[in-house]
Design a protein around this nucleic acid. Structure first.
Length: 227
DNA sequence: GACCAGGTCCTTG
DNA sequence: CAAGGACATGGT
């Protein structure tokens, strides 16, 4: 069994176990915010922080740019690294807001349905994914996973999000390749369909959280793929 | 109380 | 360029 077949078997096993998931379905601004906050942090704490940002009335990118720094830090404290993350958040939010303004044809300062402020998904449909990725990576605090999360979940681009869980679960399945090759392998199977990409990433997170933590990896059915 | 969490950046050798 | 440290709170 080669690596490609292992990835295929892994994807099949996950799909059998969980079925199709609709994972991290949220407004664009919250996806961007969450993408930063989740760095090296459990998602439950990120959700708490998002709630606090909502309560404080600053859970959009433009509000974050203008928000008082202490208030922002207070809201996201529970996600750890709160000073760094506050800095990264304002930087990224400012960047995206600027890009939005620049690419706005002009006119219509009208209210948008749902009261959401960001328009990036509507504004940048013509920009190639690779160029967008490079642009995001140029922002301080935005690495590959954060950029790919924004692309895949926020902008519905066909990009596979490679995270620590993916590495673990792949190791369990006997797939031992470099990061870029791993992304390639998953992309080849999934990159034709954004819903599939998101579902599969969700399945990986669910499975890895349950079975692939450092203690109980021995119970992981995926090991049987490593033949 | 130790150890780890859906990373990223900066500094060293 | 690889390796190691810093950033920080919350859960097991």
């Amino acid at each position: 069994m080669d690596d490609r077949q292992r990835v295929q078997a892994l994807i099949a096993l996950l799909d059998e176990t969980y079925g199709r998931l609709s994972w991290w379905d949220a407004p664009f601004d919250e996806i961007v915010i969450g993408a930063i906050l989740t760095q090296q942090t459990r998602f439950e704490n990120v959700e708490k922080a998002i709630s606090r940002l909502r309560e404080a009335g600053i859970c959009t990118l433009s509000k974050i740019v203008a928000a008082d720094r202490d208030l922002l830090e207070e809201c996201i404290r529970c996600t750890g690294f709160y000073r760094v993350k506050a800095e990264r958040l304002t930087g990224l939010a400012a960047f995206i807001c600027t890009v939005c303004e620049e690419s706005t044809p002009d006119d219509e300062g009208e209210v948008r349905p749902g009261g959401r402020e960001s328009t990036v998904p509507e504004l940048l449909p013509g920009m190639p994914t690779e160029a967008l990725r490079e642009a995001l990576l140029s922002v301080k605090g935005v690495g590959e996973e954060t950029a790919d999360s924004i692309l895949c979940y926020g902008l519905k681009r066909n990009v596979f999000v490679l995270d620590a869980y993916t590495h673990r679960i792949s190791a369990c399945a006997g797939i031992t390749v470099q990061k870029n090759r791993l992304r390639e392998l998953f992309s080849e199977e999934l990159a034709h369909d954004n819903d599939l990409l998101r579902s599969c990433h969700g399945q990986i997170v669910e499975y890895a959280k349950e079975y692939c933590n450092t203690k109980r990896c021995s119970e992981c059915r995926i090991m049987t793929l490593a033949e």
